[in-house]
Each structure stands twice: as C-alpha cells, then as structure tokens.
Design a protein around this nucleic acid. Structure first.
Length: 643
RNA sequence: GCCGCAGUAGCUCAGUGGUAGAGCGCACCCUUGGUAAGGGUGAGGUCGGGAGUUCAAUCCUCCCCUGCGGCACCA
C-alpha cells in the first residue's frame, strides 16, 4: 500500500500508510487520546475509529468533549445495548431497527407479550450491566448471502428484510458489542464502557408499525433518552415536567376555558372565558383581513352529496366526512372544507377580470371524522373553525397574491410574538385530481413566490392536498416546540370542476386560479398553541379575564364596583371579587386562573381613591390612582393592529 | 384505525368479591383578614356503558365507549 497525507485540524500534514485507522492515528499521538477517542471526522464524514482511511484526508479525532458526535454515538450505542439487553432477557424477541432521535433513541421489537413498565426497569438494569462489562465494539463487513443466511438461521426475519434493502453497491456492515451482533452502518464507540451509565433513561413503550406502514405488523417500540452527564439528563426531565405544566388541556380547565364530553369526542364545549378568547381572535383577524381587502361570507354547514361529488370530496375525502341521511333517503354531508360553498358564492352572477382578485373569507366551522387515535385536546379535533379564505385571481396575479398572503401570515404571527416560522412546501400526492400540467404550474407558482420573498422552505414530496400543492407554516414556540398553523394552497382544479369563470379583458371566459388559505389555521388549534406557548399567561389584550378587582375588607365593596365600572367603560374585561375570603386566598385563586392583573382594594385605597396593582407572576405590588390604572390598562388592552 | 395503559365525588387520587374513602372545590356558619390556600359544620358517588361468572361484582371475564402515550393520518 502507498502513502497518504492526513491533514490535522491544526493544519499539520503527516504521511501515513494507506489503510491506517483513526484509532491508530490517535494512538500515535498519545495514549490518553487513544483512550479518550470516540470517533473521527474524516473529510467531514463521521468515521468509526476502526475504519481504514485509504486516501488523503482531513482528519479530526473526536472525544466526549465534541458534543455532536458524542451524543450521536452514546445514543446509537445505547440502542444496540438496549436491544442486546432485551435479547439477553428474552432470547426469542426479534429485533428490527433502532435509530437515534432527538434527545435519545428508540428500538423496535417484535414480541408476543407486551413490555411492561417493570420490564423497562429490568432492561435498564441489564443495560447498565452491559455498560459495566466494557465489551469491545468491533465491526466487519459481510458478504450479503452470509448475512441473509445468518439472520435466517437466527430467526430474525426483519433483519433479513433489512439486508435486502441495502443497495447493491453498499457494504453489509456488522457490529459486535461483545458477543451480541447487529446489522448497522455505524459508527460506534470503542467499547460499551464509554457510554455514561447514569445519563440515560428508558421512557416509554409504544406501538409502531414495521417500517412505518399501517399495513404491516405492529411492533413494540421502546424509547430512551440519553445525555453525556447525569445532570443533563436531570435537566431534560425537568424540561419535560415544565412542558407538562403548559399542557393546554390542563390549563384550559384551570382557566375555565373549555371542556370535552364523551358524547362528542373531538368537539369543544367552549365556556364563556374560552369563547371570549375565541372571539377576540376572530375580531383581530377580521380587522386584518378587511384591511387586506377581503370580504366575509357564510356558507351552509350541511350540503347534499351532489355538491361533494362535484368538488371531488365524495371521491377523495369521504372517509373523513360526517355523513347525514334524512328520512327521505337523501345523502348530505357536513362540510369538511369551505371551498365548495365559496365556489357557489363565486358562481353567482358573471365575474369580470375587474372583480379579481376576489378574496372571500369565512370563519367556517368544518367537521372532519378524524381517526380516533389522532384526537388531542384542541390541537386535533373533529370540528373546528378555520379562518378560511379563497382568493380568485388571474394567472398573472397568482404569484403576487401568494406573496401578499405570505407577508400577511408572517405579520400576524409576529403580532402574537412568533418570529421563528418555517415553511413546508408539499407537492402532488398520489390521490389527486387535475392534470400534471396544472400541478406543474401550481407548484411552480408557490416556489416562485417563496423564492422572491427570500424565505427558506423545505419540500415534502407527495404531501399536498388532493386538489393542489400547499405551503404549511410551522411556528416555533417559547420552549422550542414546532406547531403547524397556517396553510396556503394553489388550486387550478376546482374552478374547472364547477365551471366557474371570469370574463377577460378580451371578452373571453376563462377559469380563475384559486388560492385556499388559512392563517391561524384552526382557531381551536391556534388557541391551544397560544395557551402552551404562554403557559396560560396570555398577553393582556388576549386574556379573557383581564382584571379582577378584589376587596380586602367588606367596607371596600362599593369602591370595588366603582373601579370595575371605570375599567369596563374603557372596554376592559374586569370583574369584582368581594367574596368573604382573605386576600391571600383571592390572589392565589386568580393567579392559578392566570388573570393578568389583580387590583386589591382595602381601607387605604378607598380613602385615597387608589388601587394596589398585582401583576401575574410578580411578587411586587404597586399602588396607583384609579385614573392612572384605567389609562394604563386601556393602552395595554389595545390589540397590536390598533396600537 | 393499530399497539399498550387507564376510567372511583366537580378536580387530583386511595381502596375492597359482601353496594366506598381522603385532600381540594362546593353550601352554610364563625372570621373583616394587606398579596399564592383562616377555622368549623355539611351536602355530594348508577365506582364509564352493556353482558357474563358468582349466593353476592366497583373489584374477576368478554364486548363497547372515552381518555392518555406512541404509530399511522392531519389544520
């Protein structure tokens, strides 16, 4: 073998025999580095210490100080160690795949018996045992037939299938953790003892389809989380607890916003305070849309089958629709979308190119028979209110209209404090209507709009709606979670299906292009997101209960009402609390209820015509005059678009 | 829809093959108290629904419904 040049991170270049491994290079540098090494970066690729380097390369040796490779390797090795532990305890369990995911890993198993929480404890103990054995991790490349024969002999059908999926030009790589072996592309650590034994935890077991396909067998997936240190693990578990405290289902109850019932799974019963918030959002959106040139309409909730056949929903969406049959045997459906209704409104009278773009908006309540397992609080429901609109325009206007919507969405999210927004572009799905040419045009126009707005986006092939491609707006909340909200879809199909046209300048009849868009997406979901993002502490203008005026002594009752009335006159949502309770009690109760401002009134305030202000989350109180607080809160209560 | 777990008072939960308990909340009484739960008394439950086993089921078995965690699907 010849010589190769290895370039080190400090710029030094050194010649080695071709085929040298990073482990050998590390050993040549120092004994301690050889021990501490976990992997290497070779020309940017994450490289196992055992893999030979055969050409000139830039090489960096990684240790546990390098977060990214360290976490990747810890989690990946733990996946193997867990699978090994499971097979040591239950030798007949079949193994499948076990990738690294955010904060940890999972591994899917095929086993008759379900894993129990007690099993997880047993597995975890076995894993620690394996780590303490400090088993060497070794790798070799196998012949394809040998790998298949091996897995067939060992009763591992899933592995046989995985071997078959590896492209012909790629090696079949095996990894050994001691005596236990798994098909794996690597890289891995030097030995199991490099995994921190006190910084991982098995979290839960759940069902998962083999290869993510609902037609294939259901496996059992065990999830684990892992970090470099015990402290990081603890921090992560604390983070999960914090996230749980933000759960909108729990806060919704504590704040008295809404509830659900068994008789209406996935449908919200809005309580007065929740409905107040709902209406505040609609009021805001109504103003924004009106300013952007939209007109608002309302279309029927139940329409006959013939309409849904015409729109294509009967063919493509019926499984998700609530159907209604009348005594005289007529088929109706509750609308799952507003677009067909808007088509009929557009279709009234003759439209001219002068009428375009026509922007028809509706706060329409749609019903979708979502799979039972998908339901989740406000975030996934079966009946929800969209801030929906359809924009009819000429092909020439298309890109500009997309851009305007993009601007509007981002401006609106910003008003709620969401500045970090990602965009997903979903292209034509298998189940679809319309010609390939119209799909080409539709997808192109979305791309063009995004490109000219200079906004990054990710493409999701085959994820579009059945009538057109779509953009989806995903916003990141205060603790880094992503939520899908708004959507923008281009549709060349519905106007043709409904035969709706406009008269061009030249007097011809042409089909308009149609844009479907929702900015909040669903009011229900958006409210759920707001609650979680703000942990219930909504901005003052959104808070359904803005001010509670609480008496400290009953002699203050009259003045309490005077304060409440003064606030209400300025449109502030204020209520009195003159119950026979101590101020401590009232403060606690309204704090739990997430009321942003509590005004306490005792003898002193009555005499001085002041109020003592306590803001949610602040221990400090402040006494100001009645006039002052009314003026201040009136400013705070102003929605951002009117400020 | 699929896998697993769960469903007992308004909420959070304990409990038992012989028809149930706590704390909070609620009602009433005492207390007028200065910023996250003052004290007392009391009311309140078809133990998710249906069938079965049993002398007897809230408890055991089966079916269904709903919820929770994932998967699949989606705003």
């Amino acid at each position: 073998m010849g010589q190769i040049d290895i370039t080190f991170p400090d710029g030094n270049v050194k010649a080695f025999e071709a085929g040298i491994t990073p482990a050998e290079i590390a050993a040549g540098i120092s004994n301690s580095l050889a021990k501490k090494a976990i992997s290497a970066n070779v020309n940017g690729a994450h490289w196992d210490l055992q893999w030979p380097i055969t050409e000139n390369a830039a090489v960096a040796i990684n240790t546990m100080k390098d977060d990214e490779p360290a976490l990747e390797l810890i989690r990946h090795d733990l996946a193997h160690i867990m699978a090994r532990a499971v097979q040591e305890i239950w030798p007949d369990v079949k193994v499948t795949i076990g990738p690294v995911i955010d904060n940890g890993w999972y591994y899917d198993f095929d086993r008759e018996e379900p894993f129990t929480p007690e099993d997880l404890g047993q597995i975890e103990a076995k894993m620690k045992e394996i780590i303490n054995r400090r088993d060497p991790v070794t790798t070799e490349i196998w012949d394809r037939d040998r790998a298949v024969a091996y897995y067939e002999a060992n009763g591992e059908p899933y592995k046989v299938e995985l071997v078959g999926m590896i492209p012909e030009d790629q090696p079949i790589r095996m990894y050994w953790h001691g005596h236990w072996q798994d098909l794996c592309r690597g890289p891995h650590l030097q030995h199991t003892g490099q995994v921190p034994a006190d910084a991982f935890k098995l979290m839960k077991v759940a069902g998962a389809y083999w290869r993510g396909d609902s037609d294939r067998p259901m496996l059992q997936r065990i999830y684990g989380v892992a970090f470099k240190t015990r402290q990081e693990l603890k921090d992560y578990l604390t983070f999960l607890e914090e996230a749980e405290k933000r759960d909108h289902r729990r806060l919704g109850r504590e704040m008295g916003l809404f509830h659900f019932e068994e008789v209406a799974p996935g449908s919200v019963f809005w309580h007065p305070h929740g409905w107040q918030l709902f209406q505040t959002l609609i009021g805001y959106m109504r103003r924004r849309q009106e300013a952007a040139g939209y007109v608002e309409v309302n279309s029927p909730d139940i329409m006959e089958r013939a309409l849904w056949e015409k729109s294509g929903h009967w063919e493509n969406y019926r499984a998700n629709m609530f159907l209604a049959q009348t005594q005289d045997d007529r088929d109706y459906a509750l609308k799952p979308m507003n677009c067909p209704g808007h088509m009929l409104i557009y279709g009234q009278g003759v439209k001219s190119y002068r009428d375009l773009p026509l922007k028809i908006a509706e706060f329409g309540k749609v019903h979708r028979y979502e799979p039972s397992g998908a339901l989740h609080g406000l975030l996934r429901v079966r009946s929800f209110t969209q801030d929906d609109a359809h924009i009819y325009c000429t092909p020439d206007q298309l890109t500009e209209e997309c851009l305007k919507i993009n601007d509007l969405i981002l401006s609106i999210y910003s008003d709620f404090g969401f500045e970090d927004v990602r965009i997903k572009l979903s292209t034509r799905p298998e189940n679809r209507i319309g010609s390939d040419e119209s799909w080409d045009r539709a997808e192109d126009s979305l791309r063009t709009a995004l490109d000219s707005a200079g906004h990054d986006y990710t493409i999701f092939e085959g994820e579009g709606a059945f009538y057109g491609p779509k953009l989806e707006y995903v916003l990141r909340d205060a603790i880094g979670r992503d939520w899908q909200c708004g959507t923008l879809q281009v549709d060349f199909n519905l106007p043709e299906r409904f035969g709706t046209t406009y008269v061009t300048q030249a007097g011809a009849r042409e089909y308009p292009v149609m844009l479907h868009r929702a900015l909040f997406g669903s009011l229900e979901r958006f409210i759920g997101i707001l609650i979680e993002n703000f942990a219930g502490k909504l901005p003052f203008w959104l808070a359904p209960r803005q001010v509670v005026v609480a008496s400290i002594v009953s002699d203050a009752d009259d003045y309490v009402y005077e304060v409440v009335n003064a606030l209400r006159e300025r449109g502030i949502r204020a209520e009195a609390d003159i119950r026979n309770e101590k101020i401590n009690y009232k403060v606690r109760e309204h704090s739990v209820g997430k009321v942003p401002v509590i005004l306490a009134i005792g003898q002193r305030e009555v005499e001085e015509r002041t109020v003592t202000v306590r803001r949610l989350g602040e221990k400090q109180t402040k006494t100001v005059t009645l006039d002052e607080i009314v003026a201040d809160l009136a400013v705070e209560a102003t929605p951002p678009d009117l400020a």
